[in-house]
Protein backbone atom coordinates (compact mmCIF):
# COMPACT_ATOMS: atom_id res chain seq x y z
CA UNK A 1 0.00 0.00 0.00
CA UNK A 2 0.91 3.63 -0.10
CA UNK A 3 4.33 4.03 1.38
CA UNK A 4 4.65 7.50 -0.05
CA UNK A 5 3.46 10.58 1.82
CA UNK A 6 1.67 13.46 0.20
CA UNK A 7 3.99 15.62 -1.82
CA UNK A 8 6.76 13.04 -2.08
CA UNK A 9 7.81 11.65 -5.43
CA UNK A 10 5.54 8.76 -6.44
CA UNK A 11 6.70 8.22 -10.00
CA UNK A 12 10.06 9.28 -11.33
CA UNK A 13 10.60 9.18 -15.09
CA UNK A 14 14.21 9.22 -16.23
CA UNK A 15 15.27 9.75 -19.83
CA UNK A 16 12.26 7.80 -21.12
CA UNK A 17 12.51 6.84 -24.77
CA UNK A 18 10.25 4.78 -26.99
CA UNK A 19 10.42 4.04 -30.65
CA UNK A 20 8.28 1.83 -32.84
CA UNK A 21 10.70 0.65 -35.53
CA UNK A 22 12.19 3.80 -36.99
CA UNK A 23 9.49 6.03 -35.56
CA UNK A 24 10.71 7.80 -32.43
CA UNK A 25 7.63 8.48 -30.29
CA UNK A 26 9.27 9.51 -27.02
CA UNK A 27 12.61 11.27 -27.22
CA UNK A 28 13.80 11.43 -23.65
CA UNK A 29 11.37 12.47 -20.93
CA UNK A 30 12.35 13.39 -17.38
CA UNK A 31 9.48 14.01 -15.04
CA UNK A 32 8.33 13.48 -11.48
CA UNK A 33 4.80 12.81 -10.34
CA UNK A 34 4.22 13.63 -6.68
CA UNK A 35 1.73 11.98 -4.36
CA UNK A 36 -1.61 13.78 -4.29
CA UNK A 37 -0.89 15.67 -7.46
CA UNK A 38 -3.15 15.92 -10.52
CA UNK A 39 -0.97 16.13 -13.61
CA UNK A 40 -2.72 16.83 -16.90
CA UNK A 41 -0.95 16.10 -20.16
CA UNK A 42 -2.07 18.01 -23.23
CA UNK A 43 -0.71 18.22 -26.75
CA UNK A 44 -1.55 17.51 -30.38
CA UNK A 45 -2.33 13.96 -31.46
CA UNK A 46 0.78 11.95 -32.26
CA UNK A 47 2.79 13.89 -29.71
CA UNK A 48 3.39 10.79 -27.57
CA UNK A 49 1.02 11.60 -24.68
CA UNK A 50 -0.69 8.21 -24.61
CA UNK A 51 2.55 6.33 -25.20
CA UNK A 52 4.09 8.18 -22.26
CA UNK A 53 1.18 7.19 -20.03
CA UNK A 54 1.27 3.58 -21.21
CA UNK A 55 4.99 3.36 -20.48
CA UNK A 56 4.32 4.21 -16.82
CA UNK A 57 2.65 0.83 -16.19
CA UNK A 58 4.59 -0.97 -18.89
CA UNK A 59 1.70 -1.52 -21.29
CA UNK A 60 4.34 -0.25 -23.68
CA UNK A 61 7.91 -1.31 -23.06
CA UNK A 62 10.23 1.71 -23.16
CA UNK A 63 13.25 1.39 -25.41
CA UNK A 64 15.36 3.58 -23.15
CA UNK A 65 15.42 5.23 -19.74
CA UNK A 66 13.45 4.07 -16.74
CA UNK A 67 10.35 4.63 -14.66
CA UNK A 68 10.71 4.41 -10.88
CA UNK A 69 7.38 3.80 -9.13
CA UNK A 70 7.36 3.91 -5.33
CA UNK A 71 11.10 3.28 -5.36
CA UNK A 72 10.98 0.29 -7.73
CA UNK A 73 12.13 0.24 -11.31
CA UNK A 74 9.28 -0.69 -13.63
CA UNK A 75 11.77 -1.78 -16.26
CA UNK A 76 13.54 -4.18 -13.92
CA UNK A 77 10.35 -5.45 -12.28
CA UNK A 78 10.16 -8.63 -14.36
CA UNK A 79 7.40 -10.78 -12.92
CA UNK A 80 6.79 -8.21 -10.16
CA UNK A 81 5.26 -5.93 -12.75
CA UNK A 82 1.86 -7.34 -11.78
CA UNK A 83 2.33 -6.12 -8.20
CA UNK A 84 3.30 -2.67 -9.47
CA UNK A 85 0.28 -2.56 -11.78
CA UNK A 86 -2.04 -3.39 -8.88
CA UNK A 87 -1.11 -0.02 -7.44
CA UNK A 88 -1.54 1.87 -10.71
CA UNK A 89 -5.15 2.05 -11.88
CA UNK A 90 -5.75 2.78 -15.53
CA UNK A 91 -8.77 4.09 -17.40
CA UNK A 92 -8.88 3.74 -21.18
CA UNK A 93 -10.41 5.77 -23.96
CA UNK A 94 -12.41 2.74 -25.16
CA UNK A 95 -13.46 1.76 -21.57
CA UNK A 96 -12.39 -1.87 -22.17
CA UNK A 97 -14.99 -3.31 -19.82
CA UNK A 98 -15.20 -7.09 -19.94
CA UNK A 99 -18.37 -7.72 -21.98
CA UNK A 100 -18.94 -11.27 -20.68
CA UNK A 101 -19.06 -10.13 -17.05
CA UNK A 102 -21.70 -8.11 -15.21
CA UNK A 103 -20.80 -4.68 -13.86
CA UNK A 104 -20.27 -6.13 -10.39
CA UNK A 105 -18.11 -8.97 -11.74
CA UNK A 106 -16.09 -6.50 -13.82
CA UNK A 107 -15.23 -4.66 -10.62
CA UNK A 108 -14.68 -7.70 -8.40
CA UNK A 109 -12.70 -10.02 -10.62
CA UNK A 110 -9.27 -8.44 -10.16
CA UNK A 111 -9.50 -7.95 -6.37
CA UNK A 112 -10.73 -11.54 -6.05
CA UNK A 113 -8.13 -13.14 -8.33
CA UNK A 114 -5.16 -10.89 -7.59
CA UNK A 115 -5.65 -9.89 -3.96
CA UNK A 116 -7.65 -13.00 -3.02
CA UNK A 117 -10.24 -10.74 -1.47
CA UNK A 118 -13.36 -12.35 -0.02
CA UNK A 119 -16.27 -12.08 -2.44
CA UNK A 120 -18.63 -10.63 0.18
CA UNK A 121 -16.14 -7.95 1.26
CA UNK A 122 -15.22 -6.81 -2.21
CA UNK A 123 -18.83 -6.86 -3.45
CA UNK A 124 -19.83 -4.61 -0.58
CA UNK A 125 -17.06 -2.17 -1.44
CA UNK A 126 -17.90 -2.35 -5.14
CA UNK A 127 -21.53 -1.50 -4.44
CA UNK A 128 -20.48 1.48 -2.31
CA UNK A 129 -18.20 2.73 -5.07
CA UNK A 130 -20.95 2.24 -7.66
CA UNK A 131 -23.30 4.23 -5.47
CA UNK A 132 -20.78 7.04 -5.30
CA UNK A 133 -20.64 7.34 -9.08
CA UNK A 134 -24.42 7.12 -9.31
CA UNK A 135 -24.63 3.59 -10.69
CA UNK A 136 -25.81 1.68 -7.63
CA UNK A 137 -28.71 0.21 -9.63
CA UNK A 138 -26.48 -1.12 -12.44
CA UNK A 139 -24.53 -3.78 -10.54
CA UNK A 140 -26.32 -6.65 -12.29
CA UNK A 141 -26.29 -5.05 -15.74
CA UNK A 142 -23.92 -6.07 -18.52
CA UNK A 143 -21.65 -3.54 -20.25
CA UNK A 144 -23.66 -3.75 -23.47
CA UNK A 145 -26.66 -2.34 -21.60
CA UNK A 146 -24.83 0.80 -20.46
CA UNK A 147 -24.26 4.14 -22.14
CA UNK A 148 -20.72 5.30 -22.85
CA UNK A 149 -20.66 7.58 -19.83
CA UNK A 150 -21.92 4.79 -17.58
CA UNK A 151 -19.32 2.39 -18.98
CA UNK A 152 -16.52 4.81 -18.26
CA UNK A 153 -17.75 5.38 -14.71
CA UNK A 154 -17.78 1.62 -14.18
CA UNK A 155 -14.25 1.45 -15.61
CA UNK A 156 -13.13 4.06 -13.08
CA UNK A 157 -14.74 2.10 -10.25
CA UNK A 158 -13.10 -1.10 -11.52
CA UNK A 159 -9.68 0.55 -11.29
CA UNK A 160 -10.47 2.08 -7.87
CA UNK A 161 -11.53 -1.28 -6.45
CA UNK A 162 -7.87 -2.32 -6.50
CA UNK A 163 -7.15 0.65 -4.19
CA UNK A 164 -4.38 2.04 -6.37
CA UNK A 165 -1.92 4.74 -5.31
CA UNK A 166 -2.19 6.50 -8.64
CA UNK A 167 -4.78 6.61 -11.42
CA UNK A 168 -3.76 6.92 -15.06
CA UNK A 169 -6.41 8.28 -17.43
CA UNK A 170 -5.85 7.83 -21.17
CA UNK A 171 -8.21 10.25 -22.92
CA UNK A 172 -11.13 9.07 -20.77
CA UNK A 173 -13.75 11.26 -22.43
CA UNK A 174 -12.60 11.17 -26.06
CA UNK A 175 -14.89 8.30 -27.08
CA UNK A 176 -17.95 9.77 -25.37
CA UNK A 177 -20.93 11.60 -26.80
CA UNK A 178 -20.67 15.25 -25.75
CA UNK A 179 -23.58 15.06 -23.32
CA UNK A 180 -21.83 12.30 -21.36
CA UNK A 181 -18.47 13.99 -20.92
CA UNK A 182 -19.66 15.94 -17.87
CA UNK A 183 -20.71 12.93 -15.79
CA UNK A 184 -17.27 11.31 -16.23
CA UNK A 185 -15.37 14.52 -15.52
CA UNK A 186 -17.44 15.00 -12.36
CA UNK A 187 -16.31 11.62 -11.05
CA UNK A 188 -12.70 12.51 -11.85
CA UNK A 189 -13.02 15.86 -10.12
CA UNK A 190 -14.34 14.30 -6.95
CA UNK A 191 -11.47 11.83 -7.04
CA UNK A 192 -9.02 14.69 -7.33
CA UNK A 193 -10.65 16.48 -4.41
CA UNK A 194 -10.14 13.38 -2.28
CA UNK A 195 -6.42 13.61 -2.92
CA UNK A 196 -5.99 10.79 -5.45
CA UNK A 197 -2.78 11.09 -7.45
CA UNK A 198 -3.82 11.35 -11.07
CA UNK A 199 -2.09 11.52 -14.43
CA UNK A 200 -4.59 12.51 -17.08
CA UNK A 201 -4.11 12.65 -20.84
CA UNK A 202 -6.99 14.70 -22.16
CA UNK A 203 -8.28 17.19 -24.69
CA UNK A 204 -10.61 18.71 -22.07
CA UNK A 205 -8.89 22.04 -21.52
CA UNK A 206 -11.57 23.11 -19.05
CA UNK A 207 -10.77 20.11 -16.86
CA UNK A 208 -7.03 20.76 -17.14
CA UNK A 209 -7.53 24.34 -16.03
CA UNK A 210 -9.92 23.63 -13.21
CA UNK A 211 -8.52 20.43 -11.70
CA UNK A 212 -4.89 20.20 -12.78
CA UNK A 213 -2.16 21.04 -10.31
CA UNK A 214 0.31 20.94 -13.13
CA UNK A 215 -0.08 20.90 -16.91
CA UNK A 216 2.45 19.27 -19.23
CA UNK A 217 2.43 20.25 -22.88
CA UNK A 218 3.87 17.49 -25.04
CA UNK A 219 4.89 17.66 -28.68
CA UNK A 220 7.23 15.61 -30.84
CA UNK A 221 7.95 13.15 -28.06
CA UNK A 222 9.16 15.56 -25.41
CA UNK A 223 7.64 17.80 -22.77
CA UNK A 224 7.88 21.20 -24.43
CA UNK A 225 6.52 23.21 -21.56
CA UNK A 226 5.03 22.71 -18.14
CA UNK A 227 3.67 24.70 -15.27
CA UNK A 228 0.54 25.50 -13.33
CA UNK A 229 -2.63 25.81 -15.41
CA UNK A 230 -2.43 29.59 -14.97
CA UNK A 231 1.09 29.67 -16.39
CA UNK A 232 0.51 27.30 -19.30
CA UNK A 233 -2.89 28.58 -20.35
CA UNK A 234 -2.46 32.22 -19.29
CA UNK A 235 1.06 32.90 -20.41
CA UNK A 236 2.51 30.10 -22.57
CA UNK A 237 6.21 30.60 -23.31
CA UNK A 238 6.90 28.04 -26.02
CA UNK A 239 5.70 29.00 -29.53
CA UNK A 240 4.42 25.42 -30.04
CA UNK A 241 2.30 25.72 -26.90
CA UNK A 242 0.98 29.08 -28.04
CA UNK A 243 0.16 27.66 -31.46
CA UNK A 244 -1.59 24.58 -29.97
CA UNK A 245 -3.64 26.58 -27.49
CA UNK A 246 -4.69 29.01 -30.19
CA UNK A 247 -6.13 26.09 -32.14
CA UNK A 248 -7.97 24.34 -29.31
CA UNK A 249 -9.23 27.20 -27.18
Amino acid sequence: MATVNKGETLIEVKGLKKHFGKLQVLRGIDEQIHAGEVVVIIGPSGSGKSTFLRCLNLLETPTGGDVIFEGESVMKAGKNINQLRERMGMVFQQFNLFPHLSVLENICIAPMKVKKAQRADIELRALKLLDRVGLGDKAKAYPAQLSGGQKQRVAIVRALAMEPDVMLFDEPTSALDPEMVGEVLDVMKSLAREGMTMVVVTHEMGFAREVGDRVLFMDEGIIMEQGTPEEVFGNPQNPRTQDFLRKVL
Binding site: R85, E86, F92, L97, F98, I109, A110, K113, V114, A155
Partner: peptide, 22 residues
Protein backbone atom coordinates in the same frame (compact mmCIF):
# COMPACT_ATOMS: atom_id res chain seq x y z
CA UNK B 1 -9.68 -6.74 -28.87
CA UNK B 2 -6.21 -6.00 -27.47
CA UNK B 3 -7.82 -3.55 -25.05
CA UNK B 4 -9.33 -6.47 -23.12
CA UNK B 5 -5.97 -7.89 -22.27
CA UNK B 6 -4.54 -4.42 -21.55
CA UNK B 7 -7.36 -3.65 -19.13
CA UNK B 8 -6.87 -6.97 -17.39
CA UNK B 9 -3.09 -6.59 -17.14
CA UNK B 10 -3.44 -3.00 -15.92
CA UNK B 11 -5.45 -4.37 -12.97
CA UNK B 12 -2.50 -6.53 -11.98
CA UNK B 13 -3.81 -9.84 -13.34
CA UNK B 14 -1.13 -12.16 -14.71
CA UNK B 15 -1.10 -13.25 -18.33
CA UNK B 16 -2.44 -16.67 -17.27
CA UNK B 17 -5.30 -15.13 -15.28
CA UNK B 18 -6.04 -12.80 -18.18
CA UNK B 19 -6.23 -15.74 -20.59
CA UNK B 20 -8.36 -17.85 -18.26
CA UNK B 21 -10.87 -15.30 -16.97
CA UNK B 22 -10.98 -12.62 -19.66
Amino acid sequence: DAGQSEASRSLGMTSAQTMLYI
